[in-house]
Structures are given as structure tokens and as C-alpha cells.
């Protein structure tokens, strides 16, 4: 029974993975490109820290940890559901109708329609930064910190993935304005890489409780390093990322269902 449920997904994913790795040199170039995007983003933090010692109460090692967590979570979510931003193309061309005819949930089909392995290049950049910076952060290793680290990566990935699904859901109404959603997916990723304490209060609230970027890496970093948070953001909130992930997925799935019901086909 269980095998019968998962078999179509296994077959679909297997075919995607094979198709991407068939052209080895292209795939290697894509991986390298993705890695260099990660390096570019770290470049911004590196340049800032060649000028200052702390940013938003975090030193370079802590800021690098924050960056690494945000990048790993974003790249994993981007790999699994990032291609959901192709939905406007399917809507315009009417090819979404084909998805509706198949006996699998549309969202699951969209997710398995392309699992972009090349994004792992960016994950690798995040993992490299994480590996180098962890010994310098002065983190006290215990079962608690290990659990929190793993939990953070899982929950952070889930939050970003939910943001991508929310962004895709909005496309059912916008179609031509796909880039509106980028402000929250890619913008959320950008905001997640920096300590939320540098933002003015309204912006901090926006990127903590509306687009929960601070829950992805900043609050967990505070909890991991046992640092006090800025006013209004105690560091125990770092343990609440999984709660935020559940809330975001509830919003995303509700939005997605509403969007799909709104869809009336392109008449093709």
C-alpha cells in the first residue's frame, strides 16, 4: 500500500534527476554557478566585516553562522520547490490543465516536475561557511545545541518552502506580476541572512512575524550562541521555528487551495 502511494513520486523524481545529470559538463557548470552565487552573497558580509567588528551585536563568526544557516535552508527549499515560480508560464499556456487530469495532487506534481539539483552548489557554499565558522563561534556543544541546529535547518527549509508555495498561490490571481512574490521569497532570503536587530522596528516586525525570515536563522543563532536578543525578540524564540513552519504551511496550503479553485483554465 505504502509502496503504491509513493511509487509515482519515486519514478517522477528519478526521471528528473537522470535528465539533469545526463549532460555532465553543463551540470558541472550549473553547480559551479550556483556555488558562486552563494559565494557572492557571502562576499557582501565579508566586505562589511573588513570594515567593522560587529554588525547588529553579532561578530564575524556569528554573522557567518547566521549566513550559513540562512543559505543552507534557502538553497534546499529552492531545490525542492523553487521552480514553483514557473507556475505563471503554465497558467498562461494552459498546461496546468494537464496536471489537473493526472491522479496526483497538483502541488505534489508541480514540486516533482523539476527538482533542481544544481541548487546544491549554493548549499555547498553554505555548508563550507558553516564548517569553517562553527569552531570560531564559541558554541557550547551539547545534545541541546545539536538538536537545535538540526531542527533549525529542517524548520528553516520548511519555512522557505512554504513561502515559495505562498508565492506560487498568489500567481493564480496575478499571472503577469510574478515578480511581486520575489519580494517575499528572495527578499525573505536576503533579510534572513542578516541580524534582524539592524532593522527599524516596523521592518523588524515585518521580517519576523509577517514574512518570518528572522525565525529561519537569526533567532536560532541567538539561541545556539546563548546571546540575548534585541528588545521584543528574546532568544528562546529560536526554538519556535518549527511552530512558525507549521503556521506558514497552513497559510500556504490554504492559499494554494483557494488559488486552484480560482483557476478556470486558459481555454486551450
Amino acid at each position: 500500500m505504502a509502496d503504491g502511494t509513493w511509487r509515482p513520486y519515486r519514478v517522477l523524481l528519478g526521471s528528473r534527476l537522470r535528465s539533469q545529470t545526463t549532460y555532465r559538463r553543463s551540470f558541472a557548470m550549473d553547480l559551479l554557478g550556483s556555488l558562486s552565487v552563494g559565494a557572492l552573497e557571502f562576499g557582501e558580509i565579508y566586505v562589511i566585516f573588513t570594515n567593522v567588528d560587529v554588525l547588529g551585536e553579532l561578530d564575524f563568526a556569528a554573522a557567518a553562522l547566521l549566513f550559513a544557516l540562512a543559505t543552507i535552508c534557502f538553497s534546499l527549499a529552492d531545490m525542492v520547490v523553487g521552480h514553483a515560480d514557473r507556475l505563471p508560464t503554465y497558467l498562461r499556456q494552459g498546461t496546468l490543465d494537464a496536471f489537473l487530469l493526472r491522479p496526483l495532487p497538483v502541488l505534489a506534481q508541480l514540486i516533482t516536475s523539476d527538482l533542481s539539483l544544481r541548487r546544491l552548489g549554493r548549499t555547498a557554499a553554505g555548508v563550507a561557511v558553516l564548517g569553517v565558522t562553527l569552531p570560531h563561534t564559541g558554541i557550547t556543544w551539547s545534545v541541546t545545541t545539536v538538536v537545535l541546529l538540526v531542527l533549525t535547518i529542517v524548520a528553516g527549509t520548511a519555512i522557505f518552502a512554504a513561502l515559495f508555495v505562498c508565492a506560487a498561490a498568489i500567481q493564480f490571481w496575478l499571472v503577469e506580476g510574478a515578480e511581486f512574490a520575489n519580494a517575499f521569497t528572495y527578499g525573505g532570503s536576503y533579510a534572513a541572512q542578516y541580524p534582524a536587530s539592524i532593522f527599524a522596528l516596523p521592518v523588524r516586525v515585518l521580517f519576523t512575524f509577517v514574512v518570518p525570515a528572522a525565525f529561519i536563522a537569526y533567532l536560532p543563532t541567538l539561541a545556539l550562541l546563548d546571546l540575548p536578543g534585541p528588545p521584543g525578540l528574546p532568544s528562546w524564540l529560536g526554538w519556535c521555528s518549527p511552530v512558525m513552519a507549521v503556521v506558514m504551511w497552513a497559510v500556504a496550503l490554504t492559499g494554494w487551495r483557494a488559488g486552484l479553485r480560482h483557476y478556470t483554465g486558459a481555454g486551450s
Binding site: E44, I48, N51, V52, L55, G56, L174, E176, G177, A178, E179, F180, N182, A183, F184, Y186, G187, Y190, A191, Y194, P195, I198, F199, A200, V203, F207
Partner: peptide, 20 residues
């Protein structure tokens, strides 16, 4: 949509530069 996204990124970027 593009202008909106540019503006949201500007908001983040401005606070990063001010913070630095």
C-alpha cells in the same frame, strides 16, 4: 511588480548599510 521588489530589497539594503 519589479518596482515593488526593488523597493523591498532597498529597505533591507538600507538598514544593512546603516547598520554597518
Amino acid at each position: 511588480a519589479g518596482a515593488f521588489t526593488n523597493t523591498v530589497f532597498g529597505l533591507i539594503k538600507a538598514y544593512i548599510t546603516i547598520g554597518a
